[in-house]
Simulated assay, not measured.
Amino acid sequence: MAAGLKTIILLSFVLALGFLLVILSCALFANWLPLLVALTFVFAPLPNALCTRCAGQDDFSADYNSAYVDFGNWLTSGTVVMGFALPITLAHAGVIHETAGLMSIVGGALVYGTILTYSGFFSDSGDDLF
């Protein structure tokens, strides 16, 4: 599937909408803790990207070494779960408003989904999707 200018424009719109929701969840309720959710979703694909670079053939074995990829998937899944659990926990504890927690979850999911979609459309091979 060829990605063109319309894809880039749509992805940038969705990314801007995600960041807008996260910033509004902070600004409307005068509490900037939900901004941590955006950071977790932005940094979530990094373990997969780094561990995929480390995986591959090594000097001792001609087989594919997937331990690095599995570890990267584990770290990424933990970071994504933390991105959803952090605002729920903060809202349950009364540190942030429930609406702010919901807005930050939706905004963070849009940011992470945009990163995944971008890497899927613009990767060199078809199976590099995080």
Results as ranks from 00 to 15, higher is better:
residue 28 L to C: 11
residue 56 G to P: 03
residue 45 P to A: 00
residue 117 T to L: 12
residue 80 V to D: 05
residue 117 T to S: 15
residue 69 V to I: 15
residue 28 L to N: 09
residue 107 G to E: 03
residue 13 F to H: 10
residue 49 A to R: 11
residue 126 G to K: 12
residue 55 A to S: 15
residue 50 L to S: 04
residue 61 S to A: 13
residue 6 K to V: 14
residue 119 S to A: 13
residue 69 V to N: 04
residue 7 T to A: 15
residue 103 M to C: 07
residue 121 F to H: 09
residue 37 V to K: 01
residue 73 N to M: 06
residue 118 Y to V: 12
residue 73 N to Q: 11
residue 11 L to W: 04
residue 81 V to S: 07
residue 105 I to A: 02
residue 66 S to N: 08
residue 66 S to K: 07
residue 65 N to M: 08
residue 60 F to W: 08
residue 88 I to K: 01
residue 100 A to L: 06
residue 125 S to D: 09
residue 26 C to T: 03
residue 57 Q to I: 14
residue 130 F to C: 04
residue 120 G to A: 11
residue 98 E to M: 04
residue 13 F to K: 14
residue 89 T to R: 05
residue 122 F to W: 12
residue 32 W to V: 15
residue 81 V to H: 06
residue 115 I to V: 11
residue 121 F to E: 12
residue 25 S to H: 01
residue 79 T to H: 01
residue 109 A to T: 11
residue 19 F to T: 13
residue 112 Y to P: 01
residue 77 S to P: 00
residue 128 D to V: 05
residue 8 I to F: 13
residue 91 A to Q: 02
residue 53 R to V: 08
residue 1 M to N: 11
residue 68 Y to A: 08
residue 13 F to P: 04
residue 21 L to W: 04
residue 94 G to C: 06
residue 92 H to T: 09
residue 64 Y to N: 09
residue 88 I to W: 03
residue 117 T to K: 08
residue 98 E to A: 10
residue 123 S to R: 10
residue 63 D to L: 13
residue 126 G to D: 08
residue 9 I to S: 09
residue 17 L to E: 09
residue 128 D to H: 12
residue 88 I to P: 00
